[in-house]
Design a protein around this nucleic acid. Structure first.
Length: 279
DNA sequence: GTGCTTGTTGGCCA
DNA sequence: GTGGCCAACAAGCA
């Protein structure tokens, strides 16, 4: 689930408890999600602190408590955040539950590829401030994309789109959606794209990111999006990629699947054709 | 039982 | 040193 729009969606799930003070912090300390920080230190830093604010960037979220405590969360493959009323009993895979007088804020992650990190300090942690410029920001430029593709010229473009240092928040489905819209074959080597294709790729990165954020994460800061199972329009590849006998929404031709860049990839052969390297 | 899965990392190799 | 590939992590689902 968690690509950039889902991170933004889940971040907002804890909004109802903003301004409230944490009365209790429950952790499953042995859970793999705490592998890089001490669960005990986390409890100590958060108990009694007030939930101030939150942000999402790429596939990560950062929550601020009190004046100096920051909670970083990565959702991995199966992580989710939600808020319940104060009486919520922690479930089997609920590795972190923050309790205020009115709410229980829950981090659940069955597969435990996700991660919870504590940072104490006046400023946000380094790992957060070093996240690459968002696809929707002005700093995500065609020039940056062009030079990155040049450096990664021997890798299939699908694999390159999954590299977080240039395409923060792009995951498997977004990568396929972007390539499908840009009409680029996922196995084409990054160095073989024409200038026109690179421009299309850059444009569709921004377009898909905006579309996904608007569709999945809701429109404004305050609201809590009610349901992740939002209706994704059938004009997206997204709705057809796992269908048995799925067809390309633009050409009507059958979709194809293969492992590219180590990940299951779906594309429309009628629309995305591999070509020789431009001279 | 088998064989997948929307992510990331470290180790291996060219 | 750089870049590309792959197994491993763990649980649930079909």
């Amino acid at each position: 689930m968690p690509e950039l729009a889902e991170a933004e969606f889940f971040r907002k799930q804890w909004n109802p408890a903003r301004g409230e003070t944490l009365r209790a912090v429950e952790v499953h300390a042995a859970a793999r999600v705490f592998r890089r920080s001490s669960a005990a230190a986390l409890v100590k830093a958060l108990r009694g602190a007030t939930f101030r604010s939150s942000e999402a960037a790429a596939k990560q979220m950062l929550f601020r408590f009190g004046d100096t405590a920051w909670l970083g969360i990565h959702l991995g493959m199966s992580g989710e955040l939600f808020a319940r009323d104060a009486t919520y009993p922690a479930g089997k895979h609920d590795h972190l539950v923050l309790r205020t007088d009115r709410h229980a804020l829950v981090f659940r992650d069955p597969r435990m590829f996700g991660e919870v990190q504590l940072h104490v300090g006046a400023a946000a942690p380094r790992w957060w401030t070093r996240i690459a410029p968002a696809l929707v920001s002005a700093d995500f430029t065609l020039e940056r994309v062009t030079s990155f593709l040049r450096r990664r010229r021997r890798a299939p473009i699908k694999a390159v789109l999954l590299m977080q240092e240039q395409f923060p928040g792009v995951g498997n489905w977004m990568a396929d959606e972007i390539l499908w819209r840009a009409a680029i074959h996922p196995a084409q080597l990054a160095g073989e794209l024409t200038a026109k294709e690179v421009r299309a790729l850059w444009r569709e990165c921004r377009h898909v990111a905006r579309l996904a954020l608007r569709t999945i994460a809701g429109r404004n800061e305050r609201d809590v999006p009610p349901d992740l199972n939002v209706r994704i329009p059938d004009t997206w590849l997204f709705n057809h990629r796992w269908e048995r006998g799925g067809r390309c929404p633009r050409t009507g031709a059958p979709l194809q699947h293969a492992t590219i860049g180590g990940r299951t990839t779906c594309w429309s052969p009628a629309r995305q054709k591999k070509h020789a390297a431009p001279t």
